[in-house]
Write a protein that binds this DNA or RNA. Structure first.
Lengths: 335, 335
DNA sequence: TTGTATGCGTTATCAT
DNA sequence: ATGATAACGCATACAA
């Protein structure tokens, strides 16, 4: 069943059928009804491929997601997909892992499928070595690229993010001001965003005249950063004589591990130990006590990504960099 | 840059270029090299829409997901996307909410985009009222439909699931055999799968000659089933004089609420209260104590969905219904 | 308002 | 082994 079949049955030309299909105003009410009747009667649906070929778009956005099972990213996925669909765009999902090659292939894949735009989800896409970002520059030559929680100065690349440095800075200040002096910092990532957070941590100490003990900075490999691993590592640190009266983490899941440590070590939270997570994810309500965390405005970021994408596709001038401000959501793991 | 440009530069016809592109054996090694050189030199990529129009497929699978931020479904999403991509298929994601209309529209959307197959993620797609499943029957007329954790007897519809009834039955038996006599059952869904679980619960009681107190069956609305709501409801039940020595839930998140209740009520787990969840999701390692839960073999189910889909698309005969057996994973919330 | 004809970039059939 | 040409199903510029 194609447009020729419809035109024949309705006794009109395919051009007229096409006009009806596309709500052209240049169709008499009579013909429109006649054609619509045939269309509805046959259940005809235009062939998307032919349409795509002619218009050179299938209204599709490519979503590159390092890990769709991560609470933060899966939440972003939900927000993005809904907002894009409301704008009439479908989402092609590609879960790359973190390896550079995989990400490059992911971008290639989306490019080859002729998506209208690409969203790179998470700061892990931007590498320190500039040459390793070439694939992004390359992709941006054919389609607009929008970064979720990252920035990258390049034509046709747009970044929408949370000011992680400031957010961590404020979280750290809040700990220092509540009397904590030795704040353990657990983090997952050493990339740009990761270093920004670390800077926020250091600055806060400088602002309050507290010296940073480098032993308090504790890196976890992405894969090895399981809840149990964090707990065991902290137990070991304690046994090794490291003192700390607070834990600040670059992701909520690491805080879950910290709470497990506290339980295992018999330390009361928040009386003996304060804990602050990052992302304000659904995990926060699951822990006991419930986790104080930094809300990094994911919903706002996602909405703005879609707005930006639509604007760019519309040929409008759009800001290349948008920054939201995080907010500390106090729950039960802080005083 | 299209196939004509390449053919011109390589001094061959477009047919030859197409043959090279598709690895046809009927090309001399010499021409192949010549054409490949031009292709690589120009960075030419075939137009996916034109290809789709000719082949009537773009190798795309439609994933209908009620909630991509749900831990269980987002994990499934990750498994499915990776497996499909390994088979050369991309995934179009559509997050419908649970409303019937939204699901119908979701299916329509995927159909109109000419996906090669559709995966309906989660048992919530199958309604009790047979007429409300017409949209599935309808979709199955044009593309194979595979249900994740559901079954539906209809041509071109395939179900891959876990035997929820048996799994809940065994979980219940394990509680009864450990001495529990009043097992509170918390559940989210009254659909087919939901009722199966309930049957497993009832049967176990019958098998052990324990009577079921209907007051122990506690339904939570999907939206209202937040962790806090569960906690507060259980506190109220206790205040109302309801006794229970175990909690079994149809989803892990409900168990998280039960653990919160235990904490608030000062009941020790598992000594005073046993708790068993369902899904064996990443939440299990996050709670304190860690949650005993039913592993419903999500990975195996997803792998099998992809295998089935590939087989069907290959024209092979495939089983319409596949059932995996769940497994109780004991952690710290049971004796 | 409606119809005709052409282009979109492939793949595939049929010659050569 | 290679080339010419016809689908594939739509949108649209142009003609009527």
């Amino acid at each position: 069943m194609n447009i020729y079949d419809i035109s024949r049955r309705a006794g009109v030309s395919i051009a007229t059928v096409s006009r009806v299909l596309n709500n052209s105003p240049h169709v008499s009410e009579n013909t429109r009804k006649k054609v619509m009747a045939v269309i509805e009667g046959t259940g005809y649906v235009p062939n998307a491929f032919a349409r795509g070929l002619g218009l050179n778009t299938m209204k599709t956005i490519g979503l590159l997601c390092p890990d769709a099972s991560d609470p933060y990213l899966s939440q972003a996925l939900t927000y993005l997909e809904r907002a894009f669909r409301q704008q009439g765009y479908d989402c092609l999902l590609s879960c790359t892992d973190k390896a550079l090659l995989a990400r490059q292939q992911g971008v290639e894949l989306l490019k080859s499928r002729h998506v209208d735009g690409i969203v790179l989800m998470g700061s892990s896409f931007i590498e320190d070595d500039p040459s390793e970002n070439d694939y992004i520059r390359d992709a941006a030559r054919s389609v607009p690229v929008i970064l979720l929680n990252a920035a990258f100065p390049c034509d046709n690349v747009y970044g929408v993010q949370c000011d992680d440095q400031r957010a961590v800075n404020e979280a750290t200040l809040s700990l220092l001001d509540s009397g904590c002096r030795r704040i353990l910092y657990l983090y997952h990532s050493r990339n740009y965003s990761g270093r920004k957070k670390l800077t926020g941590y250091r600055d806060a100490h400088a602002q309050r005249g507290v010296e940073v003990d480098e032993k308090l900075l504790c890196f976890f490999d992405q894969d090895k950063g399981s809840v149990h691993q964090v707990r065991d590592t902290l137990l070991q640190l304690e046994k090794d004589g490291l003192c700390f009266d607070a834990v600040l983490t670059s992701e909520d899941i690491l805080s879950v591990g910290a709470l497990k440590y506290a339980r295992a070590a018999g330390r009361r939270v928040p009386e003996d130990l304060s804990v602050i997570g990052y992302n304000n994810s659904s995990l926060c309500a699951c822990t006991e006590p419930e986790l104080t965390s930094v809300d990094n405005k994911l919903f706002a970021i996602c909405e703005h990504i879609v707005t930006t994408m639509m604007g760019v596709l519309d040929g409008k001038e759009m800001p290349q960099k948008t920054v939201f401000t995080g907010e500390l959501v106090k729950r039960e793991t802080t005083k």
